[in-house]
């Protein structure tokens, strides 16, 4: 199945901004995080289709996963 992966801020350095990944059905968010080589401990915000999510969530075809470090401003 196809999953769109978006990385932001410092996570883009040496990686990518956005990629479409083909992953086996039943894959979880963790799989995407591992594939993208993002250090788990540095993740601040994880969104699947614009909703906060945890790493155990099973993904569906067409999902978008957005991964941010801890960021703030305002």
């Amino acid at each position: 199945m196809r999953v769109t992966v978006k990385l932001f801020a410092t996570f883009r350095k040496g990686r990518f901004d956005m990629e479409v990944r083909i992953v086996p059905p039943g894959s979880t968010v963790s799989r995407i995080v591992e594939d993208a080589r993002v250090p788990e401990s540095e993740i601040g915000i994880l969104l699947v289709n614009g909703r906060h999510s945890n790493r155990m969530r099973e993904l569906a075809d067409g999902d978008t996963v957005a991964i941010f470090p801890l960021v703030g401003g305002g």
Binding site: F8, A9, T10, E42, G44, L47, P69, V71, G73
Partner: peptide, 24 residues
């Protein structure tokens, strides 16, 4: 702290555009 030590100095407050937009 990653926000005050990393994100804000590197990208400024506008680092939030992508976050809020992704979150709808």
């Amino acid at each position: 702290h990653p926000i005050t030590g990393e994100g804000l100095p590197a990208y400024g407050t506008n680092v939030l555009t992508n976050v809020l937009n992704e979150a709808g």
